[in-house]
């Protein structure tokens, strides 16, 4: 069976403002896709639309997974089909230990050894962190690592990682790369939202998002190069991109 996650002519309006415009993308299995774009380009909105987050229902267009129209499915239903989202700013949970959080209160069966090993793979000591609370006492970086561990444990088909590197020191970028490699090894795909070229380079394909439109699609090196040269000094900031750039 061919796995395919497709957005077809997808648009999103919020408060009369166009956030996403006629997006057409397809994500295959076992690959990393980078979505690059400046602040306000619509990257996080795209992530929320893919996950089906409340208030991010497309105004038009379709989302298809393996041919099934999942546009109207809830977050939970999409998660059950193997889609998950790592939030840019993961929320805190008072009174829940890392162990409870990772196993969703015991719903996911995993041995202590397995949990510890997953935490080690995101740079946290399993023994120390399993009993820590997922509350405000964790630093932003620690919280992000716990979230990455959670994504690994879920073994998703499509992991949407919204700026997984934010709040994490540059020395730890290789850890994020390893997490993505691990997902891909399991034939899952990563939809990586970032504006950091170092991390985008690991992708197999890249999309450039500009003012809610896909401006370009191609190899990460070319998209990054374009992004570096053109997007920093953008001539049409806050204006809709009218045509696709040929790279």
């Amino acid at each position: 069976m061919v796995w395919l996650f497709v957005l077809k002519n997808l648009s999103l309006k919020k408060n009369e403002k166009e956030i996403l415009r006629d997006i057409n993308v397809a994500f295959d299995a076992g690959k990393v896709y980078a979505i690059l774009g400046t602040n306000g380009a619509g990257k996080s909105s795209l992530a929320y639309v893919l996950m089906g987050v409340n208030d991010y229902k497309p105004t038009s267009g379709k989302i298809l997974l393996d041919g099934e129209d999942i546009t109207d499915l809830s977050v939970t239903e999409r998660a059950k089909r193997g889609i998950t989202l790592l939030w840019q700013e993961p929320v805190r949970f008072q009174g829940l230990s890392v162990e409870q959080y990772l196993t969703l209160g015991g719903k996911i069966r995993a041995s202590r050894d397995e949990l510890e090993s997953i935490l080690e793979s995101v740079g946290l000591s399993g023994k120390l962190y399993l009993h820590r609370m997922v509350d405000g006492l964790l630093s932003g970086g620690e919280r992000k690592r716990v979230e990455l561990a959670s994504v690994l444990l879920l073994k998703p088909r499509y992991a949407i990682l919204d700026e997984p590197d934010s709040g994490i020191d540059i020395m730890s970028l290789s850890m994020i790369e390893k997490v993505m490699e691990h997902i891909v090894k399991g034939n899952g795909s990563v939809i990586l939202i970032t504006h950091r070229e170092e991390i985008a380079r690991i992708a197999h394909e890249a999309y450039l998002l500009c003012n809610g439109s896909i401006l370009a699609h191609g190899s990460p090196d070319k998209i990054i190069e374009y992004y570096k040269n053109k997007c920093d000094n953008c001539s049409h900031a806050n204006l809709p991109a009218v045509e696709e750039v040929k790279i």
């Binding site: 409340n54 939970t76 998950t84 008072q94 209160g105 879920l154």
Partner: peptide
């Protein structure tokens, strides 16, 4: 908290299950 709910639902919990887990923590 809606963000807490959505976070847990994006891992496969239903709204009911997510609410229960959040309350359990509290």
């Amino acid at each position: 908290n809606a963000n807490q709910l959505q976070t847990l639902m994006a891992k496969g919990l239903t709204e009911e299950e997510a609410t229960e887990l959040i309350i359990k923590g509290l």
